[in-house]
Every structure is written in structure tokens, then in C-alpha cells.
């Protein structure tokens, strides 16, 4: 397990990170969200070791992360970068070897990854001749080439069209293993919602929420959407139910700690019901709530 403990980073008087702690659990995707300048990139750079924290530690299995362990991580920086004039396979082989693979292993793995990314034909082409989308695929491959022990992806999907996102997600999922912790930052909340098991929300250099997505959703009392017969909404109100919002014959009812079936009974007693369902808060809602 990858743990970030009380990370603080200051630039002169400005504090970019303020006592940031969270964990990235193996076999789970952890989404890392926050506004621009919230400190996501700073945190990730500290995790991979290109930036030193002012204070705090990054631990791996409880022990402080060593250079050798970091070498096994896969990292996709926010500012993309590869060698523009290097051939694709040579490039990935080079990165594989930097991360500790033998030349033969790295060569085979590079060939396999590029083929799976649909770049098999272009294996000996120079990177800069590829379209931006394809360059991005190679960038992801560079983070995956050495079978990393952890993945740190800074905005891996930004600038990709929906189809390219699907290819990338497919590739990532195929590389996931029960031992692999993945941390990825994104502005695209619906994407994070689709992919993530855990969530860390950063605001102004501080963690404002962290944990499994389900748990974050459940922090608030459950809400239910009901559709009742004409004029039924008023009857719900007079029956003493807490209505959070209404719209014609539709209302969102707060559960107030009652189990769903009891609440449904209460609603039924007040008015004829045609629909009754739990409201799942979208991630964007949770995000707005914790940032506010």
C-alpha cells in the first residue's frame, strides 16, 4: 500500500500542500480530484520523487519509499514528454531498461504493448511523426512498460477523444492486478466516477475528502425520489416528511434515518405513489459539496 503522510510543500511564503495524508490501496483505482492549483501535481511529483516535500513522508508497505522502489513505479507526468526523434520501440525499450528490465525483456514488452495499442505497424517510426492521440498512447505505454508496482497518472485522459479514452481505459484495466495501486488525477469527474473505487479530493492544498466512493456517498443521509399522484406532494408535506426539493408531482425526500421500506410505507400512507427510488449523488455533487 502506498501512503502519503502529512505532506507539506512550501514555495517561499506560499503553501502548495498543507498536511496532506491519504492512501492508495492495491488493486484499486484512486481518483485524485481538485481544482487547478489544488496541489494534485505537486503531490504526485513528490510521490515519484522528482520534488522534495518540505515535510512529510511517502511510505510503501509502512516503510519510507526508497529510490529503488520508486524505480519500479510507473509515472505519467502532466506535462507529457518523450524523445521526439526516437523510434517507438527503441524508446519504450529504453524506458523499460531504465526501470530495471533487461534489454531482452524490455524489447519484448515494448513490442507487445505497442501492438496492443494498435501501433504495431509503426513500431520503427519516429515518435514525432505520430498524431497527438497516438503519442499519448505511447506515453501511457511508457508508464506501463516495466510492469510497474504502482501507477501515478497525472491527467492521463486529458485531450483524448471518447474513443481514445476507451482504448486507454481498456489498456489500463488489462494491466491492473490485485497488487497494483493506481492513483490518477482528472478533471473529468464522470470519468473518475466510472473508473474509481476510491477518491481523494484536494482543495487549496488540503485533503477535504478521502475514502471509498461509496462511503463518501453514504456520508450523507440517503435521499429518495418519489413521484406521487396529482397534488400528492402537498400531502407528503403535511404528513411531516422532509422534502428537500419538489417539482410538480415529483419530490426528493430525506430518509431521516429510516430504512427505505419504512419510508416507503410512510409515503404510501400520505399519497398514491407511482415511483420510488434511492437518489445516487453524482460525484460532481459530492465534489461541489466538499469544496463549498
Amino acid at each position: 500500500m502506498l501512503q502519503v503522510n502529512h505532506l507539506t510543500r512550501r514555495y517561499g511564503d506560499a503553501t502548495a500542500l498543507d498536511d496532506v495524508s491519504f492512501e492508495v490501496r492495491p488493486g484499486r483505482m484512486t481518483g485524485f480530484v481538485g481544482a487547478n492549483g489544488a496541489g494534485k501535481t505537486t503531490t504526485m511529483r513528490i510521490i515519484v520523487g522528482v520534488l522534495a516535500p518540505t515535510s512529510g513522508t511517502v511510505t510503501w508497505g509502512g516503510e519510507e519509499l526508497t529510490t529503488e522502489q520508486r524505480r519500479r513505479f510507473g509515472y505519467m507526468p502532466e506535462e507529457r514528454g518523450l524523445y521526439p526523434k526516437m523510434r517507438l520501440r527503441d524508446q519504450l525499450t529504453f524506458f523499460g531498461r531504465l526501470h530495471g528490465m533487461t534489454a531482452t525483456q524490455a524489447h519484448a514488452r515494448a513490442t507487445d504493448l505497442l501492438t496492443r495499442l494498435g501501433l504495431g505497424e509503426r513500431i520503427d517510426d519516429v515518435l514525432e511523426t505520430l498524431s497527438l492521440g497516438n503519442q499519448q498512447r505511447v506515453q501511457v505505454a511508457a508508464a506501463l512498460v516495466h510492469h510497474p508496482t504502482a501507477l501515478i497518472l497525472d491527467e492521463p485522459f486529458s485531450g483524448l477523444d471518447p474513443l481514445a479514452v476507451d482504448t486507454m481505459v481498456e489498456l489500463l484495466s488489462s494491466e491492473l492486478s490485485p497488487d497494483l495501486p493506481v492513483l490518477f488525477s482528472s478533471h473529468q469527474l464522470e470519468l473518475v466516477e466510472r473508473l474509481c473505487d476510491d477518491l481523494v479530493i484536494l482543495s487549496g492544498g488540503r485533503v477535504v475528502a478521502a475514502g471509498p466512493v461509496e462511503a463518501l456517498r453514504d456520508q450523507e443521509a440517503p435521499r429518495y425520489r418519489v413521484v406521487v399522484a396529482e397534488g400528492g406532494v402537498e400531502q407528503l408535506r403535511s404528513a411531516g416528511l422532509t422534502l428537500l426539493s419538489t417539482n410538480g408531482s415529483e419530490a426528493v425526500v430525506e430518509g431521516n434515518g429510516q430504512p427505505a421500506d419504512q419510508l416507503l410505507d410512510a409515503v404510501r400512507r400520505a399519497a398514491p405513489v407511482s415511483e420510488f427510488s434511492r437518489v445516487v449523488r453524482p460525484l460532481s455533487q459530492i465534489y461541489r459539496d466538499v469544496i463549498a
Binding site: 511529483r45 515519484v48 520523487g49 522528482v50 520508486r70 524505480r71 513505479f73 509515472y75 507526468p77 506535462e79 507529457r80 514528454g81 518523450l82 524523445y83 521526439p84 524506458f95 531504465l98 526501470h99 511508457a142 508508464a143
Partner: peptide, 10 residues
């Protein structure tokens, strides 16, 4: 080309 960040991380 910013590749240096990947290199330095590795």
C-alpha cells in the same frame, strides 16, 4: 521535450 521528468522519476 519534458521527457526529463519521466527520467528523473525513474
Amino acid at each position: 521535450s519534458r521527457v526529463v521528468e519521466i527520467l528523473a522519476a525513474a
